[in-house]
Amino acid sequence: MSKQKRRINLIFSLLSLLLFICAVVAISQQLKKYSYWELVNSIKATASIHLLLVLGLTTVSYLVLTVYDILACYQISQRLPYLKIILADFLGHAISNSVGFAVLTGSAVRYRLYYNWGLSVVEIAQIIAFSNLSFWLGLFAIGGIGFILEPLTIPKLLHLPFTSAHPLGWIFLAIVVCYILGSFRLTGL
């Protein structure tokens, strides 16, 4: 291994350790307001079927999120084994959803794994950009439909030129449509 690659690995190992410490601190801060027995009793009071359902649906949602990275790897013609892609994306989302700062934390985890599996920095950046863009387009699509069907009232203290989220719904959907039309134009379809 070259000297530069060892330095990069050391930097990312230290960054990973720092992120882990931040996660532990963040979780411990959130749990400070509860005693150990309050947490245990709360879990015991929850029906087993509900706990299993929550665990199952959480797992399914994380697995669905891995499709973004699978599609991104396909887009850049990078043929990694699916289990590696799923592992990188699953860990990235698990940490970013726990710690926050998704672009920093989740991307750092994915960078570390993809880099060790031989992907270039540019390829990793393309995967992360594609995944984040796809995620946000999905949010815009769902948010746009929601704001059109059930527009929220905008608080007056924001001093916006509109009183409901209805125009935002149309803006969000326009962004999604523009992206789709732009994609068709770029691919020649």
Score class of each variant (00 low, 15 high):
65 L>V: 04
67 V>Y: 12
98 S>C: 08
86 I>A: 06
86 I>F: 08
100 G>H: 06
92 G>F: 03
91 L>S: 02
97 N>L: 10
94 A>V: 05
81 P>W: 09
82 Y>L: 13
84 K>R: 11
86 I>S: 05
89 D>Q: 09
63 L>G: 02
67 V>A: 13
78 Q>H: 06
85 I>N: 10
89 D>P: 09
80 L>N: 02
81 P>M: 01
62 Y>H: 13
88 A>S: 13
87 L>P: 03
85 I>L: 11
62 Y>V: 10
83 L>I: 04
65 L>Y: 04
87 L>N: 09
87 L>S: 10
89 D>I: 05
76 I>S: 09
81 P>H: 05
71 L>Q: 14
69 D>K: 07
77 S>W: 12
70 I>N: 08
81 P>N: 07
65 L>T: 08
66 T>V: 07
61 S>N: 10
63 L>K: 01
84 K>T: 02
77 S>M: 13
73 C>Y: 11
72 A>W: 00
68 Y>D: 07
73 C>D: 10
97 N>A: 07
85 I>F: 11
99 V>G: 00
78 Q>F: 08
79 R>S: 09
86 I>G: 02
82 Y>F: 12
99 V>N: 00
67 V>K: 04
100 G>D: 10
61 S>D: 06
96 S>A: 05
65 L>W: 02
96 S>C: 04
97 N>E: 05
90 F>S: 02
63 L>E: 03
98 S>D: 02
76 I>P: 07
71 L>S: 11
72 A>F: 01
96 S>N: 00
91 L>M: 10
98 S>Y: 11
83 L>G: 07
94 A>W: 07
61 S>K: 01
96 S>I: 04
72 A>P: 03
90 F>T: 03
98 S>E: 06
82 Y>A: 11
68 Y>W: 10
80 L>G: 02
81 P>L: 02
77 S>A: 14
76 I>A: 09
85 I>H: 12
87 L>F: 13
82 Y>P: 08
74 Y>F: 15
61 S>F: 02
92 G>S: 05
88 A>Q: 08
95 I>M: 10
64 V>M: 11
69 D>N: 15
66 T>H: 06
67 V>Q: 10
71 L>G: 11
95 I>D: 00
92 G>Q: 00
74 Y>L: 15
87 L>G: 06
70 I>Y: 12
83 L>N: 12
98 S>F: 12
87 L>C: 10
99 V>F: 04
94 A>M: 06
71 L>H: 11
91 L>F: 09
100 G>W: 02
69 D>S: 15
93 H>V: 04
78 Q>C: 15
85 I>M: 09
87 L>H: 11
70 I>R: 13
92 G>A: 01
78 Q>I: 14
93 H>K: 00
72 A>Y: 00
93 H>S: 07
84 K>Y: 05
74 Y>W: 15
95 I>L: 12
89 D>A: 14
87 L>T: 12
69 D>Q: 13
83 L>Y: 12
97 N>I: 06
